[in-house]
Structure formats: C-alpha cells, structure tokens
Nucleic acid binder design. Structure first.
Lengths: 136, 136
DNA sequence: ATTATATATGCGTGATTGCGCATGTAAGCA
DNA sequence: TGCTTACATGCGCAATCACGCATATATAAT
C-alpha cells in the first residue's frame, strides 16, 4: 500500500510524467542527454527526476561506458499494467512535442546507440542534416 | 499534463489510496463517518484527504441533511480508465481489511442510507447484532 | 432557543519537495 | 598524466504537505 503510494508520488510531477511518456512512446533505452534534449530542461534536473523514477522501480539503468541508459523496468510486479494504462492515459498537453523532439534527436544515433552528448536546440537541425548526408 | 500530475499527487498518499480503494470496492456513495470507521482514522484526517481527492476531481459530493456523501466522479474525462486500472492495481496490503470493515459498517444503514455517525470500533459488533434483530 | 451531531477548516510544526548553483565522480581520450 | 565528456549529487532556499489540536459551520432534534 505504501509502496503503491510511492509509485504514484513518483508520477506526481509534470517533468517525471513527461519522462515516462517518452519511455512509453519509444519502448527503447534512452540516455540522459537524449532526454535532456527532448524535454529541454537542465541536465541536473533530468538526472534528479530519473533517479526518483528509478527508486520507485519504474525505470532501470544500464551503463555503457560514459553513457547511462534508462529504460522501463518490466520486472516489477504490476508495472506492466501500469505502463499499459499510462500509455493511453498520457496524451495531449506537451507530451506530443516531447515525443517529436525525441524522434528528431534519435536520428543522431549510430548503430542504435547514442554518440553525442547534449545538443543545443539551435544546432540540432544542422547536425541532423549532416548525419543524414553521412548515412547516404 | 500538470492536471495529470495533480491527479497522481492526489493518489500519492496511503490514506487517500485506501479511500479510493473503498470507493472502487463498493461503487456506492459513502458518507464521512462510514469511511472514518472503515479506515479507523481521526475524522478530521478523513475529511482533509477527501477534500484533496475532490479537488483532484476524483470524487464528487452530494449533501443530504447533515450527511455528506462522496462518490467516484465519473464525469471527468479519463477517470473511467483510471478507475478501471486502480481497481485491479490496488490489492493486498491493508486494502482488504478496509473493505471488510466497510462491509460491516454498511450493515448499519437504513434503507440504503447512513443513519448513525462515527461508531467506536468496540461497539460496532453489538450494534450490528441489534440492527439485524430489528430487521428480522 | 438550545443542544447535539456531521463535517469542514484555521493554525502551528516538523518533514519533504523541487529548484538552482556549483561541484563531484567516472569513463574515455590525447 | 591531464583533459574532456556524461552523469550524479551536496547544499541552501522557498514552497508544500500531513498531522494534531482546537474550533467553526450547518443541519436536525428537543
């Protein structure tokens, strides 16, 4: 009971809901810099909120060199039904814009992995153009 | 988005989860004294938490004389799916005990309505016996 | 009118929360 | 070894929260 309350407390912040929405949208692993770019918030803020979600056992982490990948923690009992509910429940607001920015940002990945840190919003489009040219 | 966060914040407290569980269990209207007896907490605490849930538009109220009946607010968009999720999500812990105490307490109703205020736990069983004798 | 009852709320307190700023840690690279 | 990069965290502050205690409000009953 207290445990459930802790989970809802973790979901009781707009930034953390935006983070959860992003994970539910991709179903993929994401590193901190990608989420920082998607939500357009200071890195330390993203880090803190991710830690909160991890302590609530909604997310899990996996380190790969300097990069830390976060993803939905499917191992916890009840999380599956929670995630399924959230996926349909989180709509409207700025959720869609976050998803769009994330989609853009993920183009910069190489072989499915993040290869750059935080990208200033002003430089993203140019970098995407270069990336697409390289791939061709 | 902020609105959704507010809803989860309303759900981020053990006592409020117990209250929601009780409403989901009965689907019925309940007055403050009945919930006070079911959760075995001070009246002012129940009142405060109910106000929080009402402000989050999870519950609505309806006055009948001195009694105030609370019930699930089905009119808000998204609440239906939320309630459906919660009903299966809230299990175990002390949720079941609350439901049992509520079932007992509801026996004291007359024609489906509450007719007594807060009943000290020590007196409940005796009152139920009398009530059942009257009904027969 | 007065009293009793059902519910709500003002107030003070200790605890928690989110933010901003700065810095710490750890891994990769020159 | 030293520098850069990705991420985490200590600290102080202002805001919010839940509780306990007492009291206010409102309706009903005598």
């Amino acid at each position: 009971m207290d445990e459930k309350a802790e989970i809802f407390k973790a979901l009781s912040d707009p930034t953390r809901l935006r983070l959860m929405n992003i994970f539910l949208a991709t179903g993929d692993d994401l590193c901190v810099c990608e989420m920082t770019d998607a939500l357009q918030l200071p890195q330390y803020q993203i880090s803190r909120h991710l830690a909160t979600l991890r302590h609530a056992k909604l997310l899990k982490t996996q380190k790969q060199g300097t990069w830390t990948y976060y993803s939905l923690d499917q191992s916890q009992t009840g999380n599956d039904s929670l995630f399924q509910f959230l996926q349909s429940y989180l709509q409207g607001g700025h959720f869609d814009e976050d998803r769009e920015r994330l989609t853009q940002r993920l183009i910069l990945r190489d072989a499915g992995k993040c290869v750059v840190g935080i990208v200033p919003a002003a430089e993203l489009k140019q970098m995407i153009v270069e990336k697409l040219r390289q791939d061709a």
